[in-house]
């Protein structure tokens, strides 16, 4: 099970706690979408590579 966590803003304590539990003992990767020029090509590759994508607030 590989989880991709995508962040639209800096994760707060609630998000961090949920990510910690959801990804426990699982393969995971993350992408930060909050910058001015996200690399959408790389993001889509990561979405395709993951079993589940979670796009946090």
């Amino acid at each position: 099970m590989k989880i991709l966590n995508v962040y639209r803003s800096a994760p707060d304590d609630t998000t961090k706690k949920l990510v910690e539990i959801v990804t426990r003992d699982r393969d995971s990767d993350s992408v930060d979408l909050s910058g001015d020029s996200p690399d959408y090509d790389a993001l889509v590759d990561k979405i395709y590579d993951a079993d589940q994508t979670i796009c946090w607030w």
């Binding site: 979408l33 959408y40 090509d41 993001l43």
Partner: peptide
């Protein structure tokens, strides 16, 4: 992001 991801996909 909707446009960026759609274009890339």
């Amino acid at each position: 992001h909707v446009m960026g991801i759609t274009k890339a996909a």
